[in-house]
């Protein structure tokens, strides 16, 4: 892999997106590549939109700008503003959606922008299954991480486990199982069509 790859994550405050970005970067680093992850979260509020950016490369030097045309878009919450979710999608883009929420309209827009593939994973249900919640708020981050590793191939499940163990301090076993289920259950979906 010579070129740099760019991932953009969309979620809400409380879903663990900032931690997820650092875990993914750690798992990529363990696989022998350079990674950088950073987040924009404005004021820190539960439910507020949060965007995280991850870059993966063989080389240390990477830009420090936001990501405008991502290779991968990871959507933790499909009810976020569609313009933000679909911004910069090109024919090289691959999109992974937490499909727990009604997402057909979103998928239609993603297809219209020409994304090469769309994957879905039922991350909210998996998070509930393993009791990964704060109050009634499901923590889908580790599920999505499993899916990201599977779809991108930038790391391995083993290295993801190591990164989760290093950066998560509670419910570690549940998070590992959730990430494994995110890895095994993420599926490329047929086009919705117009």
């Amino acid at each position: 892999m010579e070129r740099m790859n760019e991932l953009r994550l969309h979620g809400r405050g409380g879903q663990g997106i900032v931690v997820a970005a650092s875990i993914f970067a750690e798992s990529v680093f363990l696989t022998g590549k350079y990674a950088r992850a950073f987040s924009l979260f404005g004021a820190e509020r539960r439910g507020a939109p949060v965007t995280a950016f991850i870059r993966v490369s063989e080389r240390r030097l990477m830009p420090r700008s936001r990501i405008y045309s991502p290779d991968y878009i990871v959507i933790l919450d499909a009810t976020l503003n569609k313009n933000n979710l679909t911004a910069g999608i090109t024919e090289k883009s691959i999109v992974i959606i937490n499909a727990a929420t009604e997402e057909e309209n979103l998928r239609r827009e993603i297809e219209l922008k020409g994304a090469t593939a769309v994957y879905t994973v039922n991350a909210t249900a998996i998070a509930w299954k393993y009791n990964l919640t704060i109050g009634s708020f499901p923590l889908v981050n580790t599920v999505m991480l499993g899916s990201m590793v599977r779809v991108s191939g930038f790391s391995t499940l083993k290295n993801l486990y190591t990164a989760i163990r290093k950066r998560v301090s509670v419910s570690i076993e549940a998070n590992l199982k959730a990430s494994e289920e995110g890895f095994t259950s993420v599926k490329e979906v047929e086009r919705v069509g117009t």
């Binding site: 970067a25 750690e26 680093f29 350079y34 990674a35 987040s39 924009l40 240390r60 420090r64």
Partner: peptide, 12 residues
Amino acid sequence: FDGFYISHTYEV
């Protein structure tokens, strides 16, 4: 150093 672009960037 710059907020977010460095302060909140995880890197090796």
